[in-house]
Simulated scan of single mutants.
Amino acid sequence: MNDKELNNYLDYLVNWIKEEVINANQKGVVVGISGGIDSAVVAAIAQRAFPNNTTVVWMPCESSDLDESCKNDLIKELKFNNLVEVDLYKSFLTFKNELINSGVELSKLALANSKARLRMTTLYAIAQSNNYLVLGTDNLCEWHIGYFTKFGDGGVDLVPLIHMLKRDVRNAAKILGVPESIINRAPTASLWENQTDESEIGFSYDLIDDYLSNKNVANEVKNRVDYLHKISHHKRNLAKKPLHYKELK
């Protein structure tokens, strides 16, 4: 998107969020912030839609010092009216230990994704208590390749950034006044220490942006993106239902 298109789209998203909340007979929205750019952009848009009815939630769970520093920069810069902090570390340890004690063999990724699911449980508890909707933070790149946690950050009510490339999100962050410390940091889901999105995916978001924009990319990029999209289909199509008994032949 060029600057004009992006500005118009951000205005549209503000109004879209308002309309969806009203249509759902709700009063506002809740956003989990991580210290990353996607959640910062969603929180900034949400605040424009509902200045007095947006709750932003910081949920540390083995979060890094950089996560917290960026979160503090965001709060200081955008001055949210309603900030909630819920430390999930002890809850996560209890959950982890109970699973281990039960004899379940946990993979590293499954355990890491449990953090995202605990966070989403927290957001929905807050949302339901206030008659709010939960806003997701996944962008087009993440959604297309399935780079999100099923029933974690993928389990939300509204996904404002789902049509925005990563570069669009970065440009939107500048327009919305997101701090440079967040814009310039390496994207990370903070699943474990020193984890970054691009090292886990295998290449940069810029290359995914290019491919999804129909630009020429190396075959290895195209093949990898297509593969990730295919194997993550189940994440984007939840709760599949069987045929009705009258449909059986």
Rank of each mutant, 00 (worst) to 15 (best):
residue 205 Y to R: 08
residue 8 N to H: 15
residue 233 H to D: 15
residue 239 A to P: 13
residue 224 R to C: 11
residue 49 A to S: 01
residue 71 K to R: 01
residue 85 E to P: 01
residue 116 A to H: 00
residue 42 V to S: 10
residue 184 N to E: 14
residue 81 N to M: 12
residue 239 A to M: 14
residue 137 T to M: 04
residue 153 D to L: 03
residue 207 L to W: 12
residue 172 A to R: 02
residue 17 I to G: 00
residue 233 H to A: 15
residue 97 N to R: 08
residue 139 N to C: 00
residue 120 M to Y: 04
residue 36 G to Q: 03
residue 30 V to N: 00
residue 193 E to Q: 15
residue 218 A to F: 08
residue 215 K to A: 12
residue 24 A to G: 10
residue 106 L to C: 03
residue 114 S to W: 05
residue 147 Y to F: 08
residue 54 T to E: 01
residue 58 W to V: 13
residue 222 K to C: 06
residue 239 A to I: 14
residue 147 Y to C: 06
residue 132 Y to E: 04
residue 203 F to N: 03
residue 33 I to R: 00
residue 187 P to F: 02
residue 235 K to L: 09
residue 246 K to G: 14
residue 103 G to R: 03
residue 67 D to C: 03
residue 9 Y to W: 07
residue 171 N to R: 10
residue 104 V to N: 11
residue 193 E to R: 14
residue 30 V to C: 01
residue 234 H to V: 02
residue 218 A to M: 14
residue 50 F to Q: 02
residue 216 N to Q: 15
residue 26 Q to A: 15
residue 130 N to D: 07
residue 90 K to E: 15
residue 236 R to I: 11
residue 70 C to D: 13
residue 118 L to I: 01
residue 85 E to K: 07
residue 184 N to P: 05
residue 193 E to S: 15
residue 191 L to W: 04
residue 183 I to Q: 02
residue 95 F to A: 04
residue 152 G to Y: 08
residue 153 D to H: 04
residue 167 R to Y: 09
residue 142 E to C: 01
residue 150 K to V: 09
residue 140 L to K: 14
residue 122 T to G: 03
residue 201 I to H: 08
residue 158 L to C: 07
residue 236 R to K: 14
residue 203 F to Y: 11
residue 107 S to N: 12
residue 131 N to H: 06
residue 62 E to A: 13
residue 166 K to D: 02
residue 227 Y to G: 10
residue 201 I to V: 05
residue 32 G to I: 04
